[in-house]
Nucleic acid binder design. Structure first.
Lengths: 245, 245
DNA sequence: GATTGACTCTTACCTAAGGTAAGGGTCTAT
DNA sequence: ATAGACCCTTACCTTAGGTAAGAGTCAATC
């Protein structure tokens, strides 16, 4: 059950040198050392190494990792914490990817971007705020992901409620198999456009097609819609196209 | 339009020292240096910095970044490349996250994991292979693989089989959350069009958009697709539109 | 015009997380 | 008992910056 440095290295992808290093700084001590000085690692050490590698992936300095592992030896809560952090990193990557996509978009039509726009997700001090903004922006206009009962309080804005209701109904229509040319669907979309037009910004049927296409191509928005109902973003787009024709 | 080091630092999140460093190693030269020696950066430099930061996020050494940027000065293809790499990184993170979730799962019921399972996604040399496996697992889960025996009989035409396979794969892609701009999806659709073109009738990307629209508006076809997977007909249409642009 | 405060310059030294190489010991199999 | 694969320590090197010192610059205010 005990593994040599090479075996651990092959298994986990870290180099042997890294194991020495972790030993030297006391981050990961072998479970046993033979008379000849060979380091041997058991299950417990592999588990610790797993945590180390998760944290390393999250760009934690080894010193911090050591502190974290030594003061919190409950594996389960460590895992939950790491899961949360990993999901945050995913969100950040998602944001960066959408920045790349926006940049590609601008590049394709030879337009220049706002300076700030170019670095969304990269500016580490600000990305939390940017992500929140991204989300808030979405919520203001399309707060579909929040369960309805949360909408009872007057704290939530009317526009968010409207958007949520619209998306829920569209999801229902999709599941019910209503055609995008169905009068009920057309009315739904028309009213929604009308609402945005009155309350938020000028928008016509053509503009709404572009909005809908944006929701398909932007990973961030797409994910939110698709999480609510698979196919919703695409249904929305088809409905928009149908109306604008 | 020219920015000082501080302004660039605030905008992008890199430190001033990093800018000096990049200057010194020739990775990012200021657009202009005043008489007093102040570095000033313009739009072109910001764009280059953007690329540098994208690559840095992908853990490229600065030396490699420099080479890449100097030999490939077409911004557009750089962006596409970076998009691809970023998506790969996302996949890898996804894999790590699923490893964390599996570990949590095992921990919850006090069972022990296989050693290898514990390090999926971390072992960089192997993660490509592991990702493939992971996808295969997903396929099983979504059952996008066609039950082959249904199609053994010669009663079923080859073209029907091809269509069925195509639709199954598209359904899988939709459920997996693949963007219509994802290379895999684009390739899928391209091949399908190519097949139709060769075997059935002349068809180009534009024509396929019309076909896809027909599948949405025609109740019979729409029902067939939507019965297979909610949203499939709309996804197909969006993919077609994306390809024809 | 002088001063102040925020900003910038160069230079020199420091750090983290390893990589590389040298020189030598250990294990197992033939 | 010798080869070949594996392991040890030690010493030096590298990357991508961080920190600090000492001095010059800029714009605004006194």
């Amino acid at each position: 059950m005990l593994l040599t440095v090479k075996q651990v290295a092959d298994l986990t992808g870290v180099t042997i040198k890294t194991l020495y290093h972790y030993h030297k700084i006391g981050l990961l001590e072998p479970g046993e050392v033979t008379d000849a000085g060979y380091r041997l690692y058991g299950k417990k050490e592999l588990e610790r190494l797993q945590h180390i590698l998760f944290y390393r992936e999250l760009d934690f300095p080894l010193e911090d990792i050591q502190k974290l592992l030594d003061e919190q030896n409950n594996r389960y809560s460590l895992l939950l914490e790491q899961k949360k952090l990993m999901e945050e990193k995913q969100d950040r990557l998602e944001l960066i990817l959408s920045t790349i996509n926006e940049t590609i978009h601008f590049e394709e039509r030879g337009k220049t971007m706002e300076d700030q726009q170019m670095f969304k997700g990269l500016n580490k001090e600000q990305w939390q705020a940017q992500l929140k903004e991204h989300n808030d922006h979405l919520k203001e206009h399309y707060q579909y992901e929040i369960p309805t009962d949360e909408f009872d309080g007057e704290a939530v804005e009317e526009s968010a409620r409207e958007a949520h209701e619209f998306m829920s109904k569209m999801a229902f229509a999709l599941k019910a198999g209503w055609s995008v040319d169905d009068e009920r669907v057309k009315q739904l979309v028309t009213r929604h456009i009308h609402y945005i037009n009155e309350q938020i910004m000028p928008l016509d049927a053509k503009g709404f097609v572009e909005s809908a296409w944006f929701f398909i191509t932007d990973e961030f928005h797409k994910k939110m819609l698709e999480d609510q109902q698979i196919g919703l973003s695409y249904y929305l787009y088809a409905a928009a196209v149908n109306l604008s024709d």
